[in-house]
Amino acid sequence: MLHPVPHEDTHEPPIVELRGVTTGYEGRHVLTDVTMSIAPGDFVGLLGPSGSGKSTLLRCILGTVDLYSGEVVVEGRSVTQRRPRAGYVPQLETIDWNFPVTVQEVVMMGCTMDYPLFPWHRRRGKERAARIMDRLGISNLARRHIRELSGGEQQRTFLARALVSNPRLLLLDEPTTGVDIKTRDDVMHLLDELNHEGITVVMSTHEINSVAAHLPRAVCLNGRLTADGPPGEVFTTEILSRTYGAEMPVTDYEGITIVAERPHFFGRENTRRRQRHGHNVAEKRHPVGRDNRAQPHSHRHGHGE
């Protein structure tokens, strides 16, 4: 566990604040009545099924979706008044990998709006880009085409673009989707390091276990906010079922919360077997030791059988 405890509450004002936000596209509501705030230094994982509003929430913070009600405040200013200064890393799947750009050219895109009226990138921007690329270990790749990179290097390139303008807030859309397990681990550790350097990180993801292992705070969405808190509290079969509409067994391995996929027998033989053995079907998830098997817990199955 990288974060033994969630970041302690600071008295600094929140860096992001959503107050009763309802938003969506073309009149269709994607997120309804979301209220939450993110403190400086937070590291938040957004979870939820596809279409649950994870990306929309990120766009909301960037101020690029229509607000039907409520208010989004970033660094003390409403996003409708001023575009927030946040680094954004898109999903790698959305990138056109055949586009003729080098790593250096991608990273410099992050400086585009630094001096909007100045036609070329200025030296200060170039120096910052060099520093960031050095920090992320991709300086030697500067002249490479983006297709010639490994998954981890691709992710670092787009991270560098997001960080080059020195934002205090970093937003990532599914940085761990479609990458191999080594890259995922690499990215999560890198984000954790950046977070420890003081950058507030908000990322959407499908990797519940990554969130449980690396992040101090999880926010579950399903058209609305279904849970918000430390993974150990949030990841219960009940909340996950409310978020994903599917039953998932939750267990604990040496202090790490692990959410497993539901085996075919889950909730049927397993429950019956345990009932035969006189086990109580618990109301709530409770941690079990490493020698115990994953125990399914749910209201419905518990009371229904």
Binding site: R59, T94, G110, T112
Partner: peptide, 19 residues
Amino acid sequence: YKFFLFATFDSEVARYYGV
């Protein structure tokens, strides 16, 4: 030039960055 590069590469993200 800077705007064209970013907007042609990824119009949506360019918009997020204020282009």
